[in-house]
Amino acid sequence: MYRFHECELDPRGFVLRRGDEQVRVERQVFGVLVHLIENRDRVVPKAELLDAVWGNRFVSDSALTSRLKDARRAVGDDGHRQEVIATVHGVGYRFVAPVELLGEPATLDPACLAQEIRYCDSPDDVRLAFAVCGDGPPLVKAANWLTHLDHEWSSPIWRHWIQWLAGAHRLVRYDERGCGLSDWDVTEFGLDAWVEDLELVVDSAGVDRFPLLGVSQGGAVAIAYAQRHPDRVSRLVLVGAYCRGRLARARSEEERQEASLDLALGRVSWRRDDAAFRQVFASQFLPDAPRETWEAFNELQRATTSVENVVRFLDAFAHIDVSAVAPKVRCPTLIVQSRRDIRVPDSQALELARLIPDSRLVFLDSGNHIITADEAAWPVLTGEVNRFLAS
């Protein structure tokens, strides 16, 4: 909740009050206000504001000008006074009114909260571990690259994600087959097995209808599940996700060679337990993060699975392809993508937005594949997802 200039704004509740009256504004107008106030420490470029509010939809500059005018009018400002929203000519816009923060977003501290870890057995006798924590409506997170329910509970890579997601939800997450607390010695690897595991975890956790979050390759699993179970998934959130793995999307011989080289390097380096390669790998996932975060990422990877399974994961990820399934998704979908992501290019986010019918794309000003707690993109990510889930 934010208080400013005789106004109160509740981003999660989509409520704007001025004095004692609730002000009704269009969704894009509200989006303009929220993005500006959440980034009030800097000038927001016009292109960023367009991406944040309209996603991948093309709109003219006049549409943005019109929404800014309506936003100023809603909070008692105008283009002459500019006491709330100032125009920085040639650069963008900045929220300049003094802001009082009325309440921090709800979070949970893992040090003070116990997660409940349970197990379920798949039809092919794979024991899967899943965890439940937090209170509120259910939220399910599909498994992604090398999770570990116990280690990530205190890891700086995922701890802030758990605090945020469980702050307002009963969060269900799990370790996919082959890693973490789930069985490592498995026969079946691949998209179909991962989707079936998600089906099993959802049923075992006793959730009926829920929003589904997919991060990285977990996005493909979430897309496939949402298509198969339109009655179960109310909303779909995809962060750093992709339709097609690196080999599946390679079209030219050069792209195929690059993808094959990346896989070959991964196989050799992981089998040799090459610390130098793991450092390169961490720098690709988290280029904007400090070295200590890279080390935490490496530590999490080493504790998560066997070298043999890492090689199998890399091969399976490279061949993922849900491009034929994505157009059949029927729930509202939010796609969030870091602009400078090395592991997953923005072309994949654009492809998802083009294929999934009722979708909206938001770009983050980050190079990190996994958004960290101390970067400017983190409150943007949480704000966008919170509003989407609450709407």
Rank of each mutant, 00 (worst) to 15 (best):
R73L: 13
H169Y: 00
H169S: 05
C179D: 05
T293Q: 12
R387A: 13
R17C: 12
V186M: 11
I370Y: 10
I162E: 05
V75G: 09
A224V: 05
V44T: 15
G214N: 09
D315S: 13
H148Q: 05
S269T: 14
G31P: 02
R209K: 15
Y225S: 11
A303T: 06
V91P: 00
L50T: 13
L381E: 07
T372P: 02
S182H: 08
D358P: 03
Y93H: 15
Q227R: 15
P287G: 05
D124Y: 05
V237S: 10
A353R: 04
Q279A: 12
E258G: 04
D365M: 08
I371M: 02
R72V: 07
Q257S: 10
S338V: 08
R256C: 03
S306F: 02
L236G: 09
V237Q: 09
W161H: 13
A222K: 09
W378K: 07
A303C: 11
V172G: 02
R12P: 00
A142V: 12
R159L: 02
R209A: 15
E384M: 11
I370Q: 05
Q28D: 14
R18V: 07
V172N: 01
E375F: 06
A74M: 03
V23A: 10
Q82H: 05
P379R: 07
C331S: 07
D109A: 10
V23E: 10
E254V: 14
L334W: 05
R127F: 07
I223D: 06
F363C: 01
L64V: 06
E254W: 08
R67L: 07
V201N: 08
D288P: 06
E176W: 05
H369N: 09
M1G: 12
D124P: 05
G19Q: 08
A289E: 08
R73A: 14
W54P: 01
D20S: 13
G190Y: 00
L314T: 09
W184T: 08
V44W: 07
A52L: 03
A168Y: 05
V43F: 01
L50M: 12
R330E: 15
R228S: 14
P290A: 01
G167F: 11
C179Y: 06
R256W: 06
V96Q: 09
E152C: 10
R27M: 02
Q22G: 00
A241Q: 06
A318F: 04
L181R: 15
F285V: 13
C133A: 13
F4A: 10
P98H: 07
V385I: 15
I37K: 01
C179R: 05
A71R: 08
L165D: 07
V201P: 10
R251V: 13
P230G: 07
R312K: 14
A86Y: 02
S283V: 04
T187E: 14
T305K: 02
A373Y: 10
R118S: 13
G92N: 10
F95P: 13
V325I: 15
A250E: 04
A373V: 09
R57S: 11
G190S: 00
S155R: 09
L68V: 10
F210I: 13
W153C: 03
